[in-house]
Design a protein around this nucleic acid. Structure first.
Lengths: 332, 332
DNA sequence: CTGTTAGCGCGTTCAT
DNA sequence: ATGAACGCGCTAACAG
């Protein structure tokens, strides 16, 4: 069965295609009678506008692109889902693009999305800056969880400094004196801010900053496990771990359990993100909750706002979302 | 900066737009000299073809749609990632659509994707049948992990019967006599097949099928936990649990731990899927590994094959992928 | 090897 | 309130 076009609907109803178009887009300048006729025919013949043609004509694709490092990462998946849940009801479709943490892929995807004529872009926790020739194209861009150098880019992130502070404070208040921090070796901005919070808390409570306890790791369970194992084997004394992500916290927990270090009795742990692993591990991991849904929703809202009303219309270029300490067993 | 078009490249290089198009698509019928000229101009002016116009002209969008119940579900996320990893290098983009398990949304998305002119569709573990008016449109459809009624739909799934068999057999061989099965109350086809395997194994080893041990639950941790808790409280005797998914297995484990039932000493557990929760829970859960990457990859491969060569070209309409028993601590 | 022409399906003047 | 005509950017058929 061939697809039916606007022209055929016009012929069927005995009006011109222009009129059908007007009815379709509710542009006025048609009588109630013709509206009925046209709508009936559309219903009857199951007409669907060809969005490609529409897109070519209007040069608006009603589509946005999302660049994400890894969709199998629960944290990102929740954000992406929130973006979609906001955009689709407003008539926008979403291209989700996995970069697998590859800078090259990221660049490739952005160019590709540009060629596809997306109306806007959301970049999640990306590595590189948004290419200048993209932003020059006037395509609105909103970044989540990453500080780009481009000035004219909007940014949405959690209050990582406060998060780092609360995490560290919790450990201190529960009696920890020597607190390890496990952080992303790449020194990305969110992790850097968590580290700032860590330092502030130590300072506020009169604890020294011991650089030997600040460990840079790759962001995966086993790197964390290895790092903590090495610490134990080297005989380094510590009684608390602030892990930059829940997976790092879990890796730390694995290492401690394996060496029969009691958690939380001998060592306490706080993670970051509040993803399921922290909820369901045993003992359950105290963590800093990031409102992933809100992050995605906010970014999408701002982006659609820019698309509709222009960049100048937006007041705040840096949106910081509150975080929350979730107390569980590892600081019990 | 305005976007540059093929016509302008033509003017600049002093050839016709048709020739530029030929060079662009490597369609032959142009000299090496003009190729150079055109390519240079393209490079210099950073020309990018307008894929929307191309799409309108060729009525091929180089885009496929993926319908998925929930992208935050690790199992689905891995499949989707595999699909994308296969499609993108072959020049196809992927629309990922979350139905949130809603039949209405699923229907809506499929119509939407149709209007967008996707070249093909992959449906993941969907609830309803693919609407007839979509398949009538000749849009190729491949389903993963779900048995649709439509005859002309290709199907990719794990060998769930064997999976159910191996899971149950493992429990039996480790000494279990009264094996609970936790399964999806909706009776979807993959789960049904796992149940068939469960029955076969029981029969082969001369164990009776006790309907009281076959429990229908919603597919989430807490439903499983509740179901097992009720079983314990009701004083039902059992020494093994075959859970239809790893999350169900984990819920069962939670309930058993809470009631101080030793796992695996008193009750053994086998899950299904092999996702991280089974790997990292303590004790780690024995499970049936599904090759998610392969599932996504296979479905995508077949779909692109149909798009390129037509449906008739495909030999097997039902593709079954092997599974594997992963022994861990819950059957230790 | 290359240019001319004719749409793909739609929205949008500019008429009436 | 409605229709005719044009063109968005591109590819395919035909002519040379």
């Amino acid at each position: 069965m061939k697809k039916i076009t606007i022209k055929e609907i016009a012929k069927i109803t005995g009006v011109s295609s222009a009129t059908v178009s007007r009815v379709l887009n509710d542009n006025g300048r048609f009588s109630e009678e013709t509206r009925k006729k046209v709508l009936d025919a559309i219903e009857k013949f199951e007409y669907r506008p060809n969005v490609v043609a529409k897109s070519l004509r209007t040069s608006r694709s009603k589509t946005i692109g999302v660049i994400v490092p890894d969709i199998t990462n629960e944290f990102f998946a929740h954000i992406v889902l929130a973006i979609e849940n906001l955009c689709v009801p407003r008539g926008y479709s979403v291209f989700i693009c996995n970069t697998s943490e590859s800078e090259e892929k990221e660049k490739m995807y952005i160019k590709d999305l540009e060629a596809k004529g997306v109306d806007g872009l959301i970049c999640l926790s990306g590595i590189m800056d948004v290419p200048a020739d993209v932003t020059r194209q006037q395509i609105p861009v909103v970044c989540i969880d990453r500080k780009p150098n481009n000035q004219h880019v909007i940014m949405v992130e959690s209050d990582n400094v406060t998060g780092g502070y609360l995490a560290t404070e919790e450990l201190i208040k529960k009696g920890c004196q020597k607190i390890v921090m496990l952080r992303d070796e790449r020194g990305v901005s969110p992790m850097q801010n968590r580290y700032v919070g860590y330092q502030q808390a130590l300072a506020d409570y009169g604890l020294p900053l011991d650089k030997n306890l600040v460990i840079n790791v790759q962001v995966d369970v086993f790197s964390a496990k290895r790092a903590i194992t090495e610490l134990i084997q080297a005989g380094v004394a510590f009684d608390g771990v602030f892990a930059g992500t829940d997976w790092l916290a879990f890796g730390a927990l694995m290492a401690l359990k394996e060496h029969h270090v009691q958690v939380p009795e001998q060592v306490k742990i706080v993670g970051f993100d509040n993803i399921t692993v922290s909820q369901f591990s045993s003992p359950a991991i105290t963590t800093i909750h990031q409102d992933k849904a809100k992050m995605g929703e906010t970014a999408a809202k701002v982006l659609l706002d820019i698309i509709d009303n222009g960049l100048d219309h937006v007041k705040t270029r840096n949106i910081t979302l509150p975080i929350e300490l979730i107390r569980r067993e590892t600081t019990g």
